[in-house]
Design a protein around this nucleic acid. Structure first.
Lengths: 204, 204
DNA sequence: TACCGACCTATCCGATCGGATAGGTCGGTA
DNA sequence: TACCGACCTATCCGATCGGATAGGTCGGTA
């Protein structure tokens, strides 16, 4: 069983490699950046499982996950992260990741999860996926309608009303209507404040 | 030598405890939240060194550090973090922390650092403190004049040009001038983008 | 059926923004 | 002294924003 670990935290790498090597049946490789991971996969594929740190250099969030999954003959790739939200975990699993591992997991569970995934299963810690729910599904987001969220997303990308209208295929006055509602709900007095509040709340 | 580790990442706790216990001369206790750490210190003080995770529940950044240091007869406390910036590390050291440990450290160095600190020394990894310097003193900030920074600060607070002008005691046209220059330097096409870019870069 | 919430459109208008143009002060340097 | 960069002010104008007012569709529920 061959596993590749890519994480810029040497400590996690060292630990994981040590625990996995102790299993006897597992052969572990480890690198510290996404670029190195890509090189390694190109030279050494296929792996039974690849673990990618969500916050490592070059990773660019889920982009790196998708890139890695597309490599070779369709690699099994799992995300590992200390800070990622439940939303990110869900997006990763939807995108076809082999699993999601929060770094808050005990070493033993972590090793078990890795073996589980290397055998072809999809893994995510139940408590993380459920417990975090209320916290992560931002209270703000619940107050907003679907359209308002779409408009807000455009705003947090620095777009003008006209651009947002074009992108959503609606008229500019409608965008303004949603903006007005958004300001009220977010307690903002202009678009810049609304954008900052949305970012602050971790939306998008 | 008695050491207390407080970190919500079970993996890190397990690893650290294992490595330190292997030393023979070190007795290690471990907890998962700041509240537990406080209880443990009250019951069990003094420790030769206490390691606190910067991002753990109840920690509230440097507040937890200061609280812990003030306990008992003046505890020696070090910060450990996976995500903290150089600025945070410096603030911690200035506040009198025994040291700062980024989680990117290899396991061996980490254990050595802990022992070093437990013996009364102050520790911080040289490369982290220097290498991060250029990154953290944001390149953006260097390109901006003092006035431009003041105007940008107002913008990131969601203020209008008129409000910024009043606060800085200059005329509105002058604020607009600085705005125009800011858009050019930040490669933004409107105030919302400029505000988001500034926040993204960690300014203010 | 009556009503409601989410959504969409149109029109109007004052405020603000974004950019240009033209002028100035002041401290520091070739 | 001549020049430059950082800063400040004023005026103008088209574009955009923010808010109000009035009207509509459509699916779901009392």
């Amino acid at each position: 069983m061959r596993i590749l670990v890519a994480d810029d935290h040497d400590l996690l790498r060292d630990t994981l490699v040590m625990f996995l090597d102790n299993e006897g049946t597992i052969e572990t490789a480890a690198v510290g950046t996404f670029t190195q991971a890509v090189e390694r996969i190109e030279a050494d594929a296929p792996y039974d499982l690849i673990l990618l740190d969500y916050n490592m250099p070059g990773m660019n969030g889920l982009d790196g996950l998708k890139t890695a999954m597309a490599m070779g003959d369709g690699q099994r790739v799992a995300l590992i992260s200390g800070e990622a939200t439940r939303q990110i975990a869900e997006s990763a699993l939807e995108a076809g990741a082999a699993g999601f591992i929060p770094k808050s997991l005990p070493a033993k569970s972590l090793v078990n999860a890795v073996k589980f995934m290397a055998m072809g299963e999809q893994y995510a810690p139940i408590d993380f996926m459920t417990a975090a729910e209320d916290v992560t599904t931002h209270p703000l987001a619940e107050k907003l309608t679907e359209r308002e969220l779409q408009v807000l997303k455009g705003l947090t990308e620095g777009k003008s009303n006209k651009e947002i209208a074009r992108d959503l295929d609606i008229q500019e006055p409608t965008v303004k209507l949603h903006m007005k509602t958004l300001y009220r709900k977010l307690e903002a007095s202009n678009r810049t404040q609304a954008a900052l509040i949305a970012r602050e709340a971790g939306l998008f």
